[in-house]
Amino acid sequence: MERLLEVKGLHVSFHTYAGDIKAVRGITFGVEKGETLALVGESGCGKSVTAKALMRLFDRTSGEILPGSEITFDGTDVMKLTKKELHAFRGAQIGMIFQDPMTSLDPTMTIGRQVGECLVIHQGLSMKEAQRQAIELLRMVDIPHPEERVKSYPHQLSGGMRQRVVIATALACNPKLIIADEPTTALDVTIQAQVLDLLRDLKQRLGTAIILVTHDLGIVADFSDRIQVMYAGQIVERGTTHEIFKECMHPYTWALLRSIPRDSQKGTTLYSLNGTPPDLLLPITGCPFASRCEYCMPICRQQLPPETDLSQTHRICCWLQHPKAPKVARPAELGGGMNA
């Protein structure tokens, strides 16, 4: 395996009148070539901000990637790119699929021009040649009658078809990495299944690495190789898909998995997390999850837990992993048991 993306100590803040919102608080992770990494968490946990930061999609006035953050993509230091170099970098090296296909397509441009635009800019093709390639791309994402479809406008397509167009646009320049930010949230279940099939198929055929940002644990189980669970701008647990679903040890991951209704407990009270995530305007001392955690110890409120290795791939930020901490077993509905 070869490292494609390396992120070190990424901090992102948004400057508002009320103060600085620290959306991402010093996260470090990497993506290998061809692998699928999922960022999972509730709204406001910083998963989308992380995804946007990789392409530096903030303007100075709103969000800022704080100095000291390092993003290295395939040998390029993304933080050092000039405006012009960034233009050449975005789209060509990393493709992006946004949540809402309604707003990520330009309503005044035909499908063909939108997909081809990227080819004209990055590969210097003529408009005519780009159109021809756009047809091929639309065929690749299973859009029926691509020759006619290139002339239609986004409003003439359904939600699922629009999302396919967005995927075709992201793939146009053969990027090495695709960031999919909640790609199926706006779609119906049967269409969601179709789009996921398409992404899975393309991933295998083209060997593209994917960062999937989502809150839906169901999608992740079947789709990703590795998972990072985020909470209040930090990665609280990371591991392979199997490790997160079967051997997870962080109380927040437990809570996420337990709040999915299971067949056995019909009509009974569902497990629910009390309280709300911490206010990102304020500094967080200790573990960000401490106030909602049922296993909270005095140290959790005072000091940020260090990251502990449970296996080569499985790492967790939790004081319960400390040798002196009481041993807590996984909740029964998640299979129970300890790891070590």
Binding site: S158, G160, V189, Q192, D197, G218, A221, D222, F245
Partner: peptide, 24 residues
């Protein structure tokens, strides 16, 4: 419709067992 719901279980092999619907 029921088989299109993703199962939160990596061992379920959801993609290969489900009934696929074409079209919209």
């Amino acid at each position: 419709l029921f088989s299109a719901i993703p199962t939160p279980d990596p061992d379920a092999n959801w993609a290969s067992t489900r009934i696929k619907l074409s079209g919209e």
